[in-house]
């Protein structure tokens, strides 16, 4: 009887020694990465703002506010890291990745920006639509090209004709048609 009285009763399933050794295990890798990212963002802003004059609280320089915020962001990032070591991740939906879609959807606008001045609005729009449409697994070429032609025509009508944006329908890279417009 005295044996059990002298022992501390832990709740079922809890073992102290193992818990202690596993203290520095990353329990929530998503949060761990997130916290580290926030610390890095803070460091980046401090580094790129190192020449800004910080000043003091009475005469705040241009660097005061961003530097204080960067330090705050790093502190929050550190807390997130600490939390990720202590608290287990909740079971959620498994992460799905679709690299083809990310690649196309992000490169689309960049390509649009690079080609706009040279190709003009109509061909750029057509290429953008057809290009990003292939990111979908339900896309088919006929639909994409029709949609691209339709949107190219609409955007030229709306933006270069009606709202007179300084961009021509066909740019200098397209020799013959470009001169007609």
């Amino acid at each position: 009887m005295s044996q059990s009285a002298g022992r501390i009763q832990f709740p079922a399933g809890m073992s102290f020694t193992r818990e202690y050794h596993a203290m520095l295990k990353i329990r929530n890798s998503r949060d761990f990465v997130g916290g580290v990212t926030m610390i890095c963002v803070g460091l980046l802003f401090i580094w790129f703002g190192r020449e800004l004059e910080v000043g003091n609280s009475f005469q705040m320089g241009p660097g005061y506010f961003p530097t204080m915020l960067s330090l705050l962001l790093m502190a929050i990032g550190a807390l997130i890291v600490v939390q990720s070591l202590m608290v287990d991740a909740e079971a959620g939906d498994p992460e799905t990745w679709n690299w083809k879609a990310y690649f196309l959807v992000i490169l689309g606008p960049i390509g649009f920006g690079l080609a706009l001045a040279g190709l003009g609005l109509a061909p750029t729009m057509l290429l953008l639509i057809v290009g990003v449409a292939t990111a979908s697994r339900y896309a088919n070429w006929r639909h994409s090209i029709l949609l691209g032609l339709f949107l190219a025509a609409c955007s030229v009508l709306l933006f270069t004709k009606l709202l007179s944006l300084p961009v021509s329908a066909f740019g200098p890279w397209i020799p013959f048609i470009g001169e007609l417009f």
Binding site: A133, R137, H143
Partner: peptide, 8 residues
């Protein structure tokens, strides 16, 4: 798949 290219 017809909507999102238009949004972009």
């Amino acid at each position: 798949h017809l909507l999102f290219p238009a949004i972009i």
